[in-house]
Design a binder for these strands. Structure first.
Lengths: 201, 201
DNA sequence: ATTTTTAATTGATCGTCGATTAATTTCCCG
DNA sequence: CGGGAAATTAATCGACGATCAATTAAAAAT
């Protein structure tokens, strides 16, 4: 049995928090939400479970932080997809949405596997961070709408994100495969285009 | 400590299985996927945890059976919505999709909270049972498509289910509320109509 | 009737989990 | 150098999924 090490100061509090988030993110990618373990995260960076709880307070707050990191990476992925995706920016967005989820199944699903207890809220700064993903979509939808309809862009963007999300979810969780569907991305893109064309695009 | 009761035969094996599924379904409705406990289900019907495992073999198979029951109730709900929903059957389907999910949050979410390990499959009979929900949608989409496109009905139905599902998911898990969206059903229905109109409806 | 076989049921057991906390160690500042 | 503040630990708790030897009672065989 090892004894307590007291104030070690190898790392500042913020550094320790980052280490836990990054390592927790890796662990989530490895084993998925159902098998995720806070103990294991602490062990992986050489700290005890008690220290982890001193940093995050609760299990939920650790998961929230890990999932916020996923949003950040996802947003970066979409920005890159838009940069490198050529002229058809709507296609780039839809394909980017799918490619991130497919390449990061466990951490992407963890966002939706985690349900906040009603008394828990996401810290403001993380909420803003997460909102950037939707903002990207709003921006691209607005750019493609007729001027007269630009005010509808935020609502339409939310709806089209939901549309693509539904297709992506059925792809990643195997529902589409069970139904014999092999082209989820094409379907999602077709639905988005139909809605945009209905708005005059 | 109580002693084993041996072959009791109060209930047949199939009856016992049904009791566990029905009680498990209630427990899932009460506490949701994250707090669900197989022990608690067994206790609720006056059996031990061991007996439950003798019936279902694994935790996953119990959850699968509970979720299949949800599909059955959901399918019944949609059939009723179509019967009583008047002439606009597409609207009836979309609203029925949402109203079931909203009225049965925990058990509806449990369907998507549960991820099968790759080596586990859904028993054939339960798979067929679950497929009836999609069949209902295919039927209604086919009825509304021009004759020349009827062959596309299954694929389009899958895609429109995904569209509605995405909206329903964002509604039930609070994403829409966080984004300030207050009319998820109307949005979903609008997207579905746009796609059907694009097909000539 | 008696014995044998089979089926059903139990709960103790194991390792692990999230969460909490008293005790301990180390750091830093005066 | 000394003492409060900060950081870290290990032990602890109740509950979880899973397993299985032991036990019982019904059914079948004799």
């Amino acid at each position: 049995m090892q004894e307590p090490m007291g104030r070690r100061s190898d790392h500042s509090r913020k550094e320790l928090e980052q280490m836990l988030i990054v390592e927790g993110h890796k662990h989530m990618a490895d084993v998925g939400f159902a098998r995720f373990s806070a103990r294991e995260v602490a062990k992986r960076i050489g700290y005890s479970i008690g220290t982890l709880y001193n940093v995050f307070g609760t299990y939920d707050q650790l998961i929230i932080a890990i999932n916020t990191r996923t949003f950040t990476l996802w947003t970066d992925h979409l920005r890159l997809a838009l940069e490198q995706g050529g002229a058809d920016r709507i296609r780039a967005l839809v394909e980017g949405y799918f490619s991130f989820a497919r390449a990061n199944r466990n951490i992407w699903m963890a966002i939706y596997d985690h349900h906040l207890p009603p008394d828990v809220t996401i810290p403001e700064q993380q909420h803003l961070q997460r909102g950037q993903l939707t903002e990207i979509v709003v921006q691209e939808i607005r750019a493609v709408l007729p001027e007269a309809l630009e005010a509808q862009a935020p609502q339409l963007a939310r709806s089209l994100v939901a549309t693509v999300h539904g297709h992506c979810m059925f792809d990643v969780n195997g529902s589409f495969a069970l139904m014999g569907e092999t082209e989820p991305v094409a379907l999602a893109l077709a639905r988005v285009r139909e809605s945009l064309e209905a708005k005059g695009f």
